[in-house]
């Protein structure tokens, strides 16, 4: 972890979306609701990971230390359930929001089209194009509003919410779920909950962290999910297709935003680095269970 802290002291100037001279334009990417949703998601996810991993690896030394630090065996389960309930609430709010906008208000681009989270042929082409670019066999694909790995992140969380949530509640209220689940399913839900949780933890704390925050284009952290806005330069590089589309439709000005206030950037950086630090610590502990 010293790496991270060191980087925080001397951030990479090329990738910092720090306040620039007045001519730098900023564009809105995420609404306030989306940023809050992400904040609730990562806070509860960190809480769930920190209280779930000690249960998964309960015979390790650190498991007992973590359990002890939150107030012991009983408290760790309480906090796990508390985070789970909050996250479930956020998930339901999000699903309701999507369906209200898409079905009730007939808002375009929710279920299909370039701004939708639903995968399309372009995503498949982008994936192969991106892989070809990795090994120098082609140009970098021009990504739309949501790139294929971002859609994967979204659906992985969506699927994970349902799978982990359902199996978790099945364990929490096992006698109730036993009314319509066979006996062996009560054994299976722990395996499912535990493996899917482990997948989520390993994925978020390694793949998502690197893809979204730690890769050279965004290093050390992509602030857009915290501030909601990104600079024109970043927008053009990361999502050229969307930029072109908005420009050609004359919609670019509608997305113009003001530069993020300094306090928000600073606050977001502290919160973001704390989250990444906790995540990487938990990742190291998890990996240590398999390789140490």
């Amino acid at each position: 972890m010293p790496d991270l802290e060191q980087k925080e002291v001397s951030p990479n100037p090329a990738a910092e979306p720090a306040p620039r001279p007045a001519e730098e334009r900023y564009f809105m990417r995420f609404t306030r609701e989306q940023r809050y949703l992400h904040a609730v998601l990562f806070t509860t996810f960190l809480g769930l990971a920190a209280t779930g991993l000690p249960l998964r690896f309960s015979d390790s030394v650190w498991a007992r230390a973590i359990a002890g630090s939150v107030g012991g065996f009983g408290a760790i389960l309480f906090f796990h359930k508390l985070c789970a309930v909050v996250l479930t609430g956020a998930f339901l709010v999000h699903v309701k929001d999507v369906f209200t906008r898409g079905l009730l208000h007939r808002q375009k681009g929710i279920f299909w089209g370039p701004t939708s989270m639903v995968a399309n042929w372009k995503d498949a082409r982008d994936l192969f194009g991106h892989l070809r670019w990795f090994i120098g066999l082609g140009d970098r694909p021009k990504f739309e509003r949501y790139a294929y790995w971002e859609k994967f992140d979204y659906w992985a969380v969506f699927w994970g919410m349902i799978v982990i949530g359902f199996s978790g509640y099945a364990m929490w209220f096992a006698p109730f779920f036993a009314h319509f689940l066979p006996g062996w399913a009560l054994n299976a839900v722990l395996v499912i909950h535990s493996e899917e949780g482990l997948l989520a933890i390993l994925f978020i704390f390694s793949i998502h962290f690197v893809n979204t925050h730690l890769r050279p284009d965004s290093f050390p952290m992509d602030m857009v999910i915290f501030t909601g806005v990104e600079s024109e330069k970043e927008f053009k590089i990361k999502r050229p297709m969307e930029y072109q589309r908005l420009a050609s439709q004359g919609l670019l000005d509608a997305r113009l935003a003001t530069a993020p206030p300094v306090w928000l950037v600073k606050f977001s950086r502290i919160v973001g680095f704390t989250a990444i630090f906790i995540g990487l610590t938990l990742l190291a502990l998890t990996v240590s269970e398999y390789f140490v």
Partner: peptide, 28 residues
């Protein structure tokens, strides 16, 4: 169930670890 979950876990992670490492090298 365990076999399915393990296969899912290992295949997703394997694909994305390779994907991410290649991406890192290329970006750098």
């Amino acid at each position: 169930v365990r076999l399915f979950m393990n296969t899912l876990l290992i295949s997703v992670l394997t694909f994305f670890v390779i994907h991410t490492i290649l991406w890192l090298f290329r970006s750098r």
